[in-house]
């Protein structure tokens, strides 16, 4: 029997290393079921490493990461995927030796209740017209849609998105924003790494601010306006 738990994802005192370098120094945060939560912070603050640690993609990690009450720190990433987590990495991870359709169908189903292909084409109509193209021949925006689209099919209900708007035209950024809002309405939980807090403000419920491998502040989206001064200082913009 799973014990009672409050949050969908609870991270406590997370430490992580790449080789000899100690990147995360005790990260604490939590994500509730159905929330959209962002990790904000400057380059090198440890946002991507935090996301990869949750997914089990960082080899050496200590502390506690609980998903639906289960401790996942000791598990390999393929086991963690089985809990219903899926990642969309910063470099998008589109496979060049696979066409668009193969990329889309690659991640295996981990739970029932994923979106149907029709629904994914509805969200991202561009993909349907390019199914036989080589994955990396798509535009940056289309590649991002493919990277998000392919993890919606698997039944994973918690999405880890690493800077999905990076380097994209404003109109594409808006489309991705609308998509995230729709996904939230369908019950997905989203942990989002962002540099662009103006974009984050349009989709998120809460923001965690990271500095030097730690979470230093939490700002509910409703208080974002009031906290602008503080946030500018954190992000150095």
């Amino acid at each position: 029997m799973a014990e009672a738990f409050k949050s969908l994802l609870e991270v406590k005192d997370l430490n992580a290393w790449y080789g000899e370098s100690h990147i995360l120094h005790g990260v604490d945060f939590e994500v509730n079921d159905g929330e959209v939560v962002t990790l904000l912070g400057r380059n090198g603050a440890g946002k991507t490493t935090t996301l990869k640690s949750v997914m089990g993609m960082v080899e050496r990690r200590e502390g506690s990461i609980r998903f639906k009450g289960s401790e996942t720190t000791k598990l390999t990433s393929n086991r963690i995927a089985g809990f219903g987590l899926a990642i969309c990495p910063e470099e998008r991870g589109i496979f060049s030796s696979l066409n668009v359709e193969e990329n889309l169908l690659l991640p295996p189903e981990v739970a029932p209740g994923g979106l149907s292909l029709e629904r994914i084409y509805e969200l991202f109509p561009n993909l349907k017209e390019r199914l036989k193209s080589q994955g990396t021949k798509l535009s940056g925006g289309e590649q991002q849609m493919l990277a998000i689209g392919r993890i919606l099919r698997t039944g994973a209900k918690m999405l880890l998105l690493d800077e999905p708007t990076e380097g994209l035209a404003p109109v594409i950024v808006q489309q991705i924003g609308r998509t995230l809002t729709k996904l939230k309405a369908e019950g997905f939980t989203i942990l989002l790494v962002e540099q662009n807090f103006r974009f984050a403000a349009t989709v998120a419920d809460r923001h965690y601010v990271m500095e030097n491998g730690r979470v230093v502040d939490m700002i509910p989206n409703t208080q974002l306006e009031a906290s602008m001064g503080k946030l500018h200082e954190y992000l150095g913009v």
Partner: peptide
């Protein structure tokens, strides 16, 4: 690494 994170051993 990414293929494994999708749930494949």
């Amino acid at each position: 690494a990414l293929v494994q994170a999708f749930g494949i051993n």
